[in-house]
Design a protein around this nucleic acid. Sequence first.
DNA 1: TTGAAAGCGCTAACAC
DNA 2: GTGTTAGCGCTTTCAA
Lengths: 332, 332
Amino acid sequence: MTRRATLTDVAGRAGVSVSTASRALHRPGRVSPATTERVQQAADDLGYVPSAAARQVRSGQSGTIALVVPDLTNPFFMALVRGSTRHLRAHDVVQVVADVEEEPRTEEQVVAALAGRVDGIVLAASRLDRAALTGWGRRIPLVVINRDVADAEVPTVTIGTQGVVAAVEHLAAHGHRHVAYAGGPVTSWSDDRRHRAVVETCARLGVRLTALGHHAPRRDAGPAAADAARRTGATALLAYNDLLAFGALDRLAETGVRVPDELSVVGHDDVFGADLTTPALTTVAVPAEDVGARAAAQLLAVLDGGDLPPSDRHVDLPTRLVVRGSSGAAPR
Amino acid sequence: MTRRATLTDVAGRAGVSVSTASRALHRPGRVSPATTERVQQAADDLGYVPSAAARQVRSGQSGTIALVVPDLTNPFFMALVRGSTRHLRAHDVVQVVADVEEEPRTEEQVVAALAGRVDGIVLAASRLDRAALTGWGRRIPLVVINRDVADAEVPTVTIGTQGVVAAVEHLAAHGHRHVAYAGGPVTSWSDDRRHRAVVETCARLGVRLTALGHHAPRRDAGPAAADAARRTGATALLAYNDLLAFGALDRLAETGVRVPDELSVVGHDDVFGADLTTPALTTVAVPAEDVGARAAAQLLAVLDGGDLPPSDRHVDLPTRLVVRGSSGAAPR
DNA sequence: TTGAAAGCGCTAACAC
DNA sequence: GTGTTAGCGCTTTCAA
């Protein structure tokens, strides 16, 4: 592989000017069939691939948007990515996916690196602080998922608390009087919102609630959450997400605690694998693909429509409880 | 959001020339502190973000490579993506991930769209035919994962058959005399290779083998594979990948077939969730992150080294069997 | 139908 | 230390 062929090379080989070559390649019809043929042949011989960058310099548009997620190995974000990909593909927009591995530092760097090469960015569950978020919002079209940047003019897509509320109600209906909540990352807005909803619902139903503090949203953080839950004497454990719940189930099985007989466990997200565990995990289903698609749609709207009607600036998608085997009646 | 600010805007606001502005921003030290300060202030005020495209037109390099995978929702590819991401991040290269959803047509389009905007492409488990592959290999630096393009000069990273061979040996050692193999996609090179290894090992050990034909590498294709396996009278089912094995387990549980007592099941990839099933899935562990990282490394080597020593052009990474509960002694 | 030339945003010689 | 200028690959007037 030597230097990539340029349009000038193609034009030279075909014995025409660059402009003719350009036209032949992109506006067939404005050039004689014979010439078109010659140019295409030359392009083929040379393995010519048009430079998107050069196009972009002229048009000011890259035809690319970026989707930044905190953890690609979390099946929830995969689903989200897929929803976004599909929407964008249908609109001929190339998508860049970046995984920042839950690191705010990395996220900042990645956003900085991406800002100059894409037309807009979707930030999923961003761990950036509000100032950074509004700062970037000034420099490049932004859409955030599961963050509230209400006063700032950044469009958002969030997921509702219907599911967790239903989860608490479900537990209360099965006789649980004491529930433990294993929280997510400190910087997580979702966790904050979810936690509030749980607090409120427990209060309303007269259920005692113990907060177990913050946890990394990963399976390996689950065992500690399970142990903590057991120590509180709660009869049900509500986990920030399914990965955490998986880890809790691991630990409970290991220590011989029967689920749900001795402890009910409820996750969140209904990720791949939630129905593989024994017992299968009761969890909150989130329309992750929709979330991705809506965010992509919002970004495209901002990009070519200019401004979004206020009603569309903040989309909140509903969640719902999926009851499986890991939750049941409270002990005794 | 109006037009994005350009370097000219910044220079204008700071009252200096574009080149000074450029230097102040990227080569502090070659410009007086006072000027640097003014320029940076102006850039900040304007929310200036340098255009990567413009840079690229000059340098001919985008600092971006693409990773194309057949299915992002398959945890195996997620792991691969992560390995690649990490390697590239460490080398300051931005990565574009594209999910082509097992569609050769989509793959072709995506590659075409990406070829002009990235410096190179890693194709994981490409479904493109050999001609298309070599064609693209001529136009842009390419590395393929789990494909054999031996004669063409495309570097490859493949995974070995140690794991499946060990799986067959393990089954034979436990008294299985008849094994069924549920194949992957028709266009899958991995399936072909894996299948051959199974055929050979079975022959060597005097184990009867029934091929169940091709299956989509997804959970929803598993039930049919399970049914087919049962009909053959085989005592063990070797699945092309874990997703297929999960689906088979679903179906076996549903129809009351005990695993492994009545039928042993072995998957491939050891994806997330393989240890969540009951019984946990015996499977072949693949160093997916390594695969991604090696492919990325190869591409970078091609990109800046020019040519790769022949010994490094084709990397084959070893796999190993992980025995869990889903496989055991043959019935009676 | 085709060609010449300008210009997109940026960097790097090359002056001063 | 700073400004002027040329040119990266491409598209698009504007002429011919």
